[in-house]
Design a protein around this nucleic acid. Structure first.
Lengths: 233, 233
DNA sequence: TACTTAACTTAACGGTGTTAAGTAACGGAG
DNA sequence: CTCCGTTACTTAACACCGTTAAGTTAAGTA
């Protein structure tokens, strides 16, 4: 390896140093605290140096979010092993909500603000990186196994499920300090939204005993699926 | 009436001129286009003049949103007349979604960004102004009439319903220009989310014929409730 | 007529993202 | 080794932002 590779490696190194600095500000003080100048301060560079490594601020933030969402999406590899698609869906939903609540800044720029340039680094359609593709896959399986009542369009169903989960997460992020509403714990809201959507979605069988997903897990439902909220281990 | 009232009236007049200018920019070019300087340009004042009428930019936007949300909430007076609580819930949901989609800028600052100072001009708890109170009222009635399966906490249920609707609206606002996902029409998503949530929420009766709310209105269900999307007349 | 005050304007401050121009160090070619 | 171009930066500046301080003008009051 000549100095050619070394340069490239150093370049990559400073790139991640910038991303790390941005992430710290991101996590500690929110998106609005992330300014080019403050990032530069942290790595002891001049603000303009960043532009040599990133086209502009938006690209920087997008890459940061992409990168972190990617490591989140690796959970899907484990979740994909859950045999029962319903349990798998619940696990994926729980993981998604957890990501949003533990990374509100990422979530805000990714899903709560317009623009959001198309990601280049995430492989679209690959269920191990593309969360939507993963969800859509589960829904497709549910439909194929005739578990879904009525709807046959996997995209429509996936988008509806996503919307519901997104509603819980984004409302929590935007309104967690709001005192207008007497908020119930976000875990309870998340749980009930999943429960309602699934009851509305799935073919009813063994209905009558309500509140499925609250008692002990039924056969065919992996334990992880009902975990209240927390890394799906 | 002496010049005392005239001054006050003139003051109110310029206040609404400012709000109108802000609203135009808001609607035409989005929140980020609304700057104090551009508002000032429109009304041919200096930027600092605005500060004589509004504490700061945030207060100005908050008042604008409050004001417009209030006129939206007047629809509740009509909707409240729908006797069947389920139909009333659907009508309220439709109206809410319509508001968000036709006023994305308002919606963004009200429900998609943190901070959002507590509103002073909307009477909290008054169902004719406070949309959450209106929703909560419907849910309370549903629970009282034993139409809800399982849950007994009106706040929790109201928040879950709100979350689901909010998810559809906010995802549409944030991602309407996204090409990653093969989006289904927002009307379809909104309709299905309502359908699923209600099926999950309500005591099942006459289940089996699925896709309730798609066919002609059942008895007890006001026509407005199933209107696809559009002013609930 | 003199004074007060409301309603503005101009100028400026400190901040932002971003660009232009300059500089120092390094790697390869003659 | 020298020359040269590219790479990786820095400093200075631009255009914008929200906001404040200070000055100006007109109207109302005593």
């Amino acid at each position: 390896m000549g100095p050619r590779e070394r340069r490239e490696r150093e370049r990559e190194e400073i790139r991640t140093r910038i991303l790390d600095a941005a992430r710290e500000l991101f996590a500690a003080e929110g998106v609005e605290a992330v300014t080019m100048r403050r990032i530069a301060d942290r790595i002891e560079y001049s603000p303009t140096a960043i532009y040599f490594h990133f086209r502009d601020k938006e690209a920087l933030l997008a890459e940061l979010c992409d990168c972190d969402f990617r490591v989140f999406a690796q959970q899907f590899i484990e979740i994909a092993k859950i045999p029962d698609p319903v349990a798998r869906l619940k696990a994926a939903g729980t993981a998604y909500v957890n990501f949003g609540l533990s990374n509100p800044s990422h979530y805000r720029v990714m899903f709560m603000t317009p623009k959001a340039a198309e990601s280049k680094t995430i492989e679209k359609g690959n269920p191990e990186e593309d969360a939507y593709a993963f969800l859509r896959g589960i829904v497709t399986e549910l439909i194929a196994k005739d578990l879904v009542s009525g709807e046959t369009d996997p995209d429509l169903v996936a988008q509806v499920i996503w919307s519901a989960m997104h509603g819980v997460v984004s409302l929590e992020i935007a309104k967690c300090n709001d005192t207008w509403v007497d908020w119930r714990p976000v875990e309870a809201r998340a749980r009930l939204v999943v429960e309602m959507i699934l009851r509305g979605l799935l073919i009813e069988e063994g209905r009558g005993q309500r509140a499925e997903g609250r008692g002990p897990a039924q056969p065919g439902s992996a334990a992880a699926a009902n975990a209240p909220l927390g890394p799906s281990e």
